[in-house]
Nucleic acid binder design. Structure first.
Lengths: 138, 138
DNA sequence: ACATTTTTGCACCAATGTTGCAAAAAATAA
DNA sequence: TTATTTTTTGCAACATTGGTGCAAAAATGT
């Protein structure tokens, strides 16, 4: 398991450090998305706030994690298992936010439908965020 | 024009104040969404930061404006002309963010397609944010 | 015009995010 | 393995963003 984590870091040309391993591990063990605060509040790992910011930034740049649009002013990060392990990053799935447990999960298998834009608009990325009640809270 | 603004406020049972009129006016004259900073930086209107926060909050509560999910940690607000003037607020259109001019616009006429969720998930709200190049930058 | 209610501005506070730099750790070379 | 180079971390200090309580000011209702 810890080997797998080191591999991901190596594959992305990143030095293997305690901090990066632990943060990446959190993502691998989390069913949903994580906010900066979730990582910082983690009890059995304490790194500086700044380190968390920088690590998340690095992971996003490398495509290990991606961020999810939110309506409040928080940034949510999620690792999308299949894509990210392969090294190249797709982000064309639906994000679901549960109103009850407040977790955000990537619905890997729900494909985003085509959206037809008016003339003159070029479409690069489409983000779909659905809120409601998840399968565990139902 | 300034009459129309007062009417919107009245319709929503809000006291008509200089600040609210000016901020609402900015929305009516803006082709795209506005961030808190845009309003605060506006030169020919200077109110306290706190007033801007509270005004935006009030407008959201009343359904005059709504906020748009973003990937960074900013909050974008947009007034959707037709809906909001009618008093009751729908938010089932697509939001478009231009990578060139960085503006966010509501595509009122682009309807969000149905997304089929896995078993157990209940769907309340669907937000679609598309990024790319807008019709003016093309 | 007056009394009542609402809104505003100010001061202060709290959380969040950023930068520069020296110390520590990791990668590389010998 | 040890030494050297490169990268990362932690600290301090700062900037930005957002929130609260309260008195003054403005808007509303009579």
């Amino acid at each position: 398991m810890m080997e797998q984590i080191a591999d991901i870091l190596k594959k992305n040309q990143l030095s293997i450090t305690e901090g990066r391993k632990k943060i990446l591990n959190m993502f691998l063990n989390s069913p949903g998305a994580l906010a900066h605060a979730d990582i910082e509040k983690n009890t059995d790992a304490s790194f500086d706030r700044v380190t968390v910011y920088r690590t998340l930034q690095t992971f996003v740049e490398k495509g290990i994690i991606h961020n999810i649009p939110t309506t409040d002013n928080s940034i949510l990060y999620a690792l999308c298992k299949d894509n990210c392990e392969a090294g190249h990053h797709h982000d064309n799935h639906v994000h679901f936010i549960c109103d009850v447990c407040d977790k955000t999960i990537c619905l890997e298998n729900v494909i985003i439908p085509e959206v037809k834009l008016p003339k003159g608009f070029t479409q690069k990325q489409t983000d779909v965020v659905i809120s409601g009640i998840c399968n565990k809270c139902k």
